[in-house]
Amino acid sequence: MSTRIKICGLRDAETIRAMDGLPIHEIGFVFAKSRRQVTAEAAAELIRAARSLRCADGMPPRTVGVFVDPEPEALRDVLRAAPLDIVQLHGSETPEYCRRIRSELGVRVWKVFAIRGGDAPAAERIAPYAGAIDAALIDTAGGGTGSVFDWRLVTDYKTAARAIGVPLYVAGGLNEYNVRELVDAHEPDGVDVSSGVETDGVKDPVKIRSFVGRVAEG
Rank of each mutant, 00 (worst) to 15 (best):
13 A>K: 01
126 I>L: 03
20 D>S: 07
180 R>Q: 10
113 F>D: 07
63 T>R: 03
172 G>T: 15
10 L>W: 10
97 Y>L: 08
197 V>Q: 09
159 T>C: 13
191 V>Q: 00
75 L>P: 00
133 I>M: 04
99 R>N: 11
194 S>Y: 01
22 L>V: 00
135 A>Y: 07
86 I>Q: 12
58 G>F: 03
58 G>Y: 02
185 A>N: 15
113 F>A: 00
125 R>P: 02
181 E>W: 14
49 A>C: 05
31 F>C: 06
50 A>V: 01
213 G>E: 08
188 P>A: 09
111 K>Y: 03
136 A>F: 12
115 I>L: 06
199 T>N: 04
125 R>D: 07
105 L>F: 09
80 R>K: 15
90 H>V: 00
188 P>G: 05
61 P>R: 04
140 T>P: 04
217 E>L: 11
4 R>H: 06
182 L>A: 02
3 T>W: 09
202 V>D: 12
26 E>H: 11
181 E>L: 14
201 G>F: 13
20 D>E: 05
173 G>Y: 02
42 A>M: 14
34 S>L: 07
101 I>C: 10
207 K>P: 01
95 P>I: 01
160 A>P: 01
168 L>N: 08
13 A>H: 07
214 R>P: 02
57 D>I: 12
194 S>F: 14
45 E>P: 01
92 S>Y: 15
73 E>A: 07
145 T>N: 05
216 A>P: 13
46 L>T: 01
91 G>M: 05
159 T>L: 10
74 A>G: 15
88 Q>A: 00
207 K>W: 15
42 A>D: 12
52 S>Q: 14
119 D>T: 04
208 I>A: 00
52 S>C: 12
122 A>K: 03
182 L>W: 08
186 H>A: 00
149 F>I: 13
153 L>P: 06
181 E>N: 09
93 E>A: 06
2 S>W: 12
7 I>Y: 01
124 E>V: 13
79 L>D: 00
138 I>R: 02
117 G>C: 10
105 L>D: 05
152 R>V: 14
111 K>C: 05
94 T>Y: 07
97 Y>W: 15
37 Q>W: 13
